[in-house]
């Protein structure tokens, strides 16, 4: 037996070395920021806003709820995260946080976020947040993700719910306007992730995830992306047509929608492998720009409107 360790390796409990930053990484901060952004857009649809501190606390609760979902996702997917190059440096596969700690962290934050939102806003918003966490963790992560190539189509509902949660937190209600924002994100999600899936075809294949390109092939995936973009382009104009965004937003949505259609068509008609990869990369990057710009315009318009400047 060596002097360095008194306890036998096999019987010594594994003690954590995780720093707070590792737990923050478990929350998927980039996803959290997107959730806060879309939830804020939903918040701002409300005719009148609550006190700024209540808005801040509600957005914080929604962000923590989204982070808790991310932690539970990483807990459940630790086995495949360890294999994929894109995810193998995450805290659990890297060995900095053990799975039990991640599970406890995710569950505690889930409960805390839901009850905090109920306390600072209302229980409809809290119930919607609880449903979002449940949908992402149980329906998407545990059930659909490894079962069907439609995983991202149905699971995308979880990522689309934050504007509805935000609006409900502000008003205690669900409106056509918040449902419109839900619809935009819901239709946007599949082409966005399928573009990524084309780029990461081998990685998803190596862990057996049934992403659409792995199951149905590149041709079918590119067709589906094109079809979804044909639906998404006019849907993105919806907020203007429904009267809760200005013509400026409408013009931007039409222009961005045409750009999206162009890239989707370019991806569909690409022949060589290198061209498909390049087009998928452009499609993936532009889809982020598309959604970000639409929601940024909505947010700026509503803020200026609330200030009486627009």
């Amino acid at each position: 037996m060596s002097d360095a360790s008194y306890f036998d390796e096999s019987t010594t409990p594994k003690l954590p070395v995780a720093a707070p930053l590792d737990f923050i990484a478990l929350l998927k901060p980039r996803v959290m920021s997107l959730v806060v952004f879309t939830a804020l857009a939903g918040f701002l649809l409300a005719p009148t806003l609550p006190h700024p501190l209540l808005v801040f606390a509600a957005l914080l609760a929604i962000a923590v709820g989204a982070g808790a979902s991310g932690a539970l996702n990483m807990w459940y997917d630790a086995d495949i995260d360890a294999v994929m190059r894109r995810t193998r440096l995450r805290p659990i596969p890297a060995g900095r946080i053990d799975t039990d700690a991640a599970l406890a962290f995710g569950v505690i934050l889930s409960v805390l976020s839901v009850f905090t939102l109920g306390f600072v806003s209302n229980w409809l918003a809290a119930a919607l947040l609880a449903f979002t966490i449940f949908f992402y963790v149980v329906i998407y992560t545990m059930w659909l993700k490894r079962l069907t190539p439609l995983n991202i189509v149905i699971g995308g509902a979880a990522g689309a719910l934050p504007p509805i949660v935000g609006y409900a937190a502000a008003t205690g209600d669900v409106s056509i306007a918040s449902l419109m924002l839900f619809t935009i994100i819901f239709i946007w999600t599949p082409p966005h992730f399928w573009s990524l899936a084309i780029l990461k075809l081998d990685e998803y294949g190596s862990v057996g995830l049934p992403m659409l390109p792995n199951v149905s092939g590149l041709r079918r995936t590119r067709l589906e992306i094109l079809i979804y973009c044909v639906v998404l382009a006019p849907t993105g104009v919806g907020p203007w047509l429904l009267g809760f965004a200005s013509w400026l937003y409408g013009v931007a949505a039409i222009g961005l929608g045409l750009g999206l259609l162009y890239l989707a068509a370019q991806l569909f008609f690409a022949q060589e492998d290198a061209a498909i990869q390049k087009a998928a990369r452009q499609m993936f990057a532009f889809s982020i720009f598309y959604l970000f710009t639409l929601f940024l315009m909505l947010t700026i318009e509503r803020v200026l409107s609330l200030m009486g400047l627009f």
Binding site: F7, T12, P16
Partner: peptide, 18 residues
């Protein structure tokens, strides 16, 4: 009992502060 390594001590202290 179990003797923590310096890295584990640092991690625990940082987590407690957080």
């Amino acid at each position: 009992g179990i003797v923590l390594t310096p890295e584990q001590m640092r991690g625990r202290r940082a987590r407690n502060i957080a």
